[in-house]
Design a protein around this nucleic acid. Structure first.
Length: 576
DNA sequence: GCCGTTTTCGGCCCGACTGTTTTCAGTCG
């Protein structure tokens, strides 16, 4: 059983217990376990076999025994019991913004509503406004939120899709006859959400491999199963498509399967103009002979094009640009990132100590990391008071004595309060190495108010960057409305950066806003906003957004060496 | 539920915002 599935089981159990009204801390313990398991590097089965489960933080005797039950029987009794007690549709409803366990209970009790479709119908026929504690506004909000979810139906977040794709790749790579296998499609192009996981494998035994995938225990329905291609829908909710190839046509298959369709078709047209025929089955010359290729790069060369990175293959002008200039811009790369400038420690709501974060940063090859804990008003996150911040500053100053060629920077993620002021005294902000300003409350302000609020922060001389500009959570929470043009103009005037938040459920700025920010001449900073060590490894997601927006190292603040970075930050403060 | 310790049980996530009320319940960050 995959870690991913075990984590989902605990997540579902927590959701059901929440509906039941179970003790808050017990629910939180299950949620924590789900998160921890999803983040493990080692298969849970292996930890269990080596009797190391209890060493994992957040897993105690009770949860360990439930894991054992899952691993040995494939089921968890407690979860099965809860499933019998409560309608599965209730979780779907509870996951809607604004609907928690209480409201889901009211809706079920009075209207027998137990699915999003039923809820939508009830809302549209104005039944919800008649229920106790609910009204017309809530009813309209429900309709809007269901629309948002429906827009994302069949879409899967890139983060979990990548994890699942990697686990599948490992599984298939071990099948007899498989020589090469690679993840392709939207996952390889780093689309923020994908509808399927695509794979290409070079194998001497394609039919057997296709049958192997088609008979996967999590396969729900086999949509296509031919001698060289298989497509299944799965109980995970995502489709999986595998294309097989021989040595001679592997690179063309890889290209074709990576897509997108428009990019490939444009390449096929270009190939025809040069006397070739390009398809998933290879690049054929005028006589119909398959051209031997050594790489995807080689394939592009035959079309007189430079290698186009997968992130750019969206038919957004990349082919035309190459034809015109013969090359692509020098896009920012993960190796260009010299440090993470937005990380939370256990001084606020992060789980790791500052020292652990520094060690992780060094392990990632960084020259610096900024500790940016929450500001005081964010009580739930244990936001830091001015006194605490000064204490933290001293702590970091001491800690830095032990490092050579590496520095921990002292920063803060200051809340932009409803009126636009910052949740931290200016004299404290002024002492910080870096100040990220973000919105965490008052999400429902209208576009003008929210824009004005953020512009107030952008024009504050102590603010270096705006964190997660729109506050969206992909697929679950619409971002607040902002006039990005106005904010970017103000940011340009005041030399403030925009963050590309790398968290796969945020990716905020998204690629469109990143492109727009570049057009305004802004610098961006690619951060993880990590609350634990593992999530500090999510920088590639932010880098991918930047690449899809055609950003170069010079567009990104944290590609600078430590000295240059400190000079930039200081000179900004002095110049204002 | 887990964790840490005081080793047997108490602490762990509080407060703003919204929409509904007409003083507050529910949700969320």
């Amino acid at each position: 059983m995959l870690n991913f599935e075990i984590a989902l089981a605990f997540q579902e159990l927590a959701d059901l217990l929440e509906f039941k009204g179970e003790d808050f801390f017990k629910i939180r313990a299950y949620r924590r376990a789900a998160r921890v398991i999803a983040c493990l590097d080692e298969p849970v089965g292996q930890l269990f076999a080596n009797k190391k489960l209890l060493q994992v933080p957040g897993i105690g005797k009770n949860i360990a025994s439930k894991i054992e039950e899952l691993l040995t029987t494939g089921k968890m009794n407690k979860l099965e019991e809860m499933r019998k007690k409560f309608h599965p549709g209730l979780i779907e409803i509870m996951n809607l913004p604004g609907i928690g366990p209480k409201r889901a209970g009211i809706l079920f009790k009075h209207l027998q509503v137990a699915s999003l479709n039923e809820l939508d119908r009830a809302a549209r026929s104005e039944h919800i406004r008649k229920l106790p504690g609910l009204g017309a506004k809530t009813e309209q909000e429900i309709i809007r939120n269901i629309q948002m979810l429906q827009k994302n139906t069949g879409r899967y977040l890139l983060g979990p899709a990548k994890t699942l794709a990697a686990e599948l790749c490992d599984l298939l790579a071990g099948f007899p006859g498989v020589k090469k296998i690679e993840v392709t499609g939207g996952v390889r192009r780093w689309q923020e959400t994908v509808s399927s996981i695509n794979l290409v494998a070079e194998t001497g035994n394609p039919e057997a491999l296709c049958l192997f995938l088609a008979s996967h225990p999590r396969a729900k329905e086999v949509q296509i199963c031919s001698k060289y291609r298989v497509k299944i829908s799965t109980w995970w909710g995502i489709d999986i498509e595998l294309l097989t190839a021989q040595e001679k046509d592997y690179w063309a298959a890889l290209l074709w399967s990576t897509g997108n369709t428009a990019h490939c078709q444009k390449l096929a047209s270009l190939a025809r103009m040069k006397g070739y025929e390009l398809s998933a089955r290879g690049l054929a010359d005028a006589q119909g002979r398959i051209v031997t290729l050594s790489s995807e790069d080689d394939l592009y060369s035959h079309l007189d094009l430079p290698f186009i990175p997968p992130e750019l293959r969206e038919d957004k002008g990349e082919i035309e640009y190459c034809l015109e200039t013969g090359k692509l811009p020098d896009l920012v790369d993960q190796k260009d990132i010299k440090g993470d400038l937005h990380v939370h420690s256990n001084w606020s709501d992060g789980v790791s100590s500052i020292e652990q974060i520094a060690d992780q940063a060094i392990g990632l090859g960084y020259s610096y990391v900024a500790i940016t804990d929450h500001s005081a008003s964010l009580k739930i996150a244990g936001g830091l008071s001015a006194e605490k911040l000064l204490e933290q500053r001293e702590y970091i100053r001491e800690l830095n004595k032990k490092y050579e060629n590496f520095q921990v920077l002292h920063g803060i993620e200051a809340d932009i309060l409803s009126g636009g002021s910052l949740d931290c005294p200016e004299d404290i902000l002024n002492k910080m190495d870096i100040v990220i300003a973000s919105v965490h409350t008052g999400f429902r302000q209208d576009r003008a108010a929210m824009t004005g609020r953020i512009i107030s922060a952008v024009t504050n001389k102590n603010v270096d960057a705006v964190g997660h500009l729109t506050g969206r959570l992909i697929g679950t929470r619409r971002g607040y409305e902002v006039d990005a043009e106005k904010i970017f103009q103000a940011a340009k005037t005041h030399g403030t950066c925009m963050e590309i938040n790398s968290s796969p459920d945020r990716l905020d700025l998204n690629e469109d806003y990143s492109r727009l920010a570049k057009r305004h001449g802004l610098k961006m900073v690619i951060n993880t906003d990590a609350h634990d060590l593992r999530r500090m490894r999510e920088i590639p997601f932010g880098v991918a957004v930047a690449r899809r927006a055609w950003l170069c190292p010079a567009d990104i603040l944290n590609t600078a060496d430590l000295g240059d970075l400190l000079n930039t930050l200081k000179s900004k403060k002095n110049n204002r």
